[in-house]
Design a protein around this nucleic acid. Structure first.
Lengths: 115, 115
DNA sequence: CGGAATCCTTATTGATACTG
DNA sequence: CAGTATCAATAAGGATTCCG
């Protein structure tokens, strides 16, 4: 999601920061509560450490996520959403609702087809 | 955006149907009014015919876009959003607004940095 | 625990030329 | 006009190994 997009509406910029496979869900998990690296990894079955750290870094760069490292042993790092991140999560709400209904709709259609 | 996503919220399904570089903007253009193939091509600078038709087909398959072909010479095809597509566009509204504000914010920061 | 570094596979996107 | 067909490029995503 790094290529330039000739969008004339805000959808473009929004997708640039939240697009891709993981960012939206990561941000969502941080909306629930601050979480540690390992916690996120467990919550996102299938994500590799590389992707997780990469996405977190990009989210951080874009000002959506906050990273706080505690210099302890064993090391501990906590990620949380920033204020800006919270506003994005809010804007994502209706889309999440839509997706929920859509998924149910698709599921219902599938059951009917299977018999 | 075809890989399975382990999302537990509606964001996953939503991104599966609207994710990628072009779908959201295409749908947005069709929200303004029904449009012809060539019209969309002009409105989306940078998109290739291949991508345009591909994305349109997928949107059609997912029930978001309607395709109506008029058997004339020269051929004419009109694409429009379905009712479901309209609900998705509505859900996309807040995200578009957010992106708008974000883009302005980023732009302002850039200007300041440049001096 | 929380990464970094490397290599590799697949998915997405694009350029170009051609057709009914 | 509204597409198809091919081929090429790039980006996204993932597996593995290693480190402080």
């Amino acid at each position: 999601m790094k290529a330039k997009k000739p969008y004339n509406c805000g959808i473009g910029p929004a997708f640039e920061v939240i697009g891709g496979k993981w960012k939206a869900v990561i941000l969502w998990e941080l909306h629930v509560q601050p979480r540690r690296f390992g916690e996120l990894k467990r919550l996102l079955p299938g994500i590799s450490e590389k992707m997780l750290i990469q996405q977190l870094r990009e989210l951080e760069t874009d000002g959506l996520v906050n990273r706080e490292a505690f210099h302890e042993v064993p090391p501990r790092v906590e990620y949380s959403e920033t204020k800006l991140g919270a506003t994005l999560n809010a804007a994502l709400g209706p889309l999440a609702d839509w997706g929920d209904r859509y998924a149910k709709r698709v599921e219902a259609a599938r059951k009917k087809a299977d018999g």
